[in-house]
């Protein structure tokens, strides 16, 4: 799976001519039009852009949830676009964490058990308790999702995503269903994870202000990258103007 001509050390992600087309013929939709991109390790990357601009499609392909129509994507030295379904599952299992807008917790499992769901199958996890401490939920370990607020549920989802110590964390509108205070707290948690565990984090958001906390901001428009801005002084999530 090693790519030819790639130099050490690998970037976290690299894509070349990445395209995604949904449908065929006249009804075909070009979700991605030949995206070339490189994302460094340990970066917090914010992807901005209107709905349908291609940011989620990119995230899904990089996260191993979807396949590109053309072009290639590499995770370190591994070419994602050449993996089988089972290999993609293994990739997600060992290297990647996801956080979604709707927390997607298992209602039948407590906060701790939701995290253990992942630690049981991961290669090198931290303990569920530790992961929940990281997100500040050390005291609500035995609560079921129905007993937690939206912000708390999202923090459990983050704990669940980071407990396997993934190299990358993908967050698709992680604060979309939350109020501003809770949203900031959740972003602070992501920043903590990045600082403490060195996790590369990709965040999709509609809230442009979030860009202030990113190392790299990628603006999407019509399936292509419009521009990439590097931010040398990312601010603390708490200071973000909502």
């Amino acid at each position: 799976m090693l790519d030819h001509g790639q130099t050490e050390p690998y970037a976290a992600f690299r894509t070349k001519g990445l395209s995604k087309i949904y449908g065929e013929g006249r009804s075909a939709v070009h979700a991605l039009r030949g995206v070339d991109l490189e994302i460094g390790r340990g970066e917090i990357v914010v992807l901005l852009g209107p709905s349908g601009s291609g940011k989620s499609t990119l995230l899904n392909i990089l996260g191993g949830l979807d396949r590109a129509s053309e072009g290639d994507a590499w995770f370190g030295g591994q070419c994602l676009t050449k993996m089988s379904n089972r290999e993609l599952t293994t990739y997600r299992r060992n290297h990647v964490g996801f956080v979604f807008q709707f927390y997607n917790l298992m209602p039948s499992l407590t906060a701790r058990e939701n995290v253990e769901l992942v630690t049981e199958i991961a290669e090198n996890p931290i303990s569920a308790d530790e992961a929940l401490n990281v997100v500040g939920l050390g005291k609500r370990l035995d609560h079921f999702p129905a007993q937690l607020s939206g912000g708390e549920q999202q923090r459990v989802a983050i704990a669940r995503a980071v407990a396997k110590q993934p190299e990358v964390l993908f967050c698709d509108e992680p604060t979309g269903a939350l109020d501003s205070t809770t949203g900031r707290a959740v972003l602070r948690v992501l920043q903590d994870v990045n600082e403490k565990l060195g996790t590369t984090i990709l965040i999709i958001t509609h809230a442009a202000a979030t860009a202030a906390m990113a190392d790299r901001v990628i603006n999407f428009s019509d399936g292509a990258i419009r521009d990439v801005q590097l931010n040398n002084n990312p601010v603390d999530a708490e200071e973000i103007e909502w």
């Binding site: 917790l105 209602p107 058990e113 769901l117 035995d142 079921f144 129905a146």
Partner: peptide, 24 residues
């Protein structure tokens, strides 16, 4: 989300031997 808190107390000792999918 459906509330499962009532089922949580079910045989904690037994449950602790089970993996999460089995608990679900």
């Amino acid at each position: 989300p459906p509330d499962y808190s009532k089922t949580g107390s079910f045989g904690k000792r037994i449950v602790s031997y089970l993996d999460q999918p089995t608990r679900m």
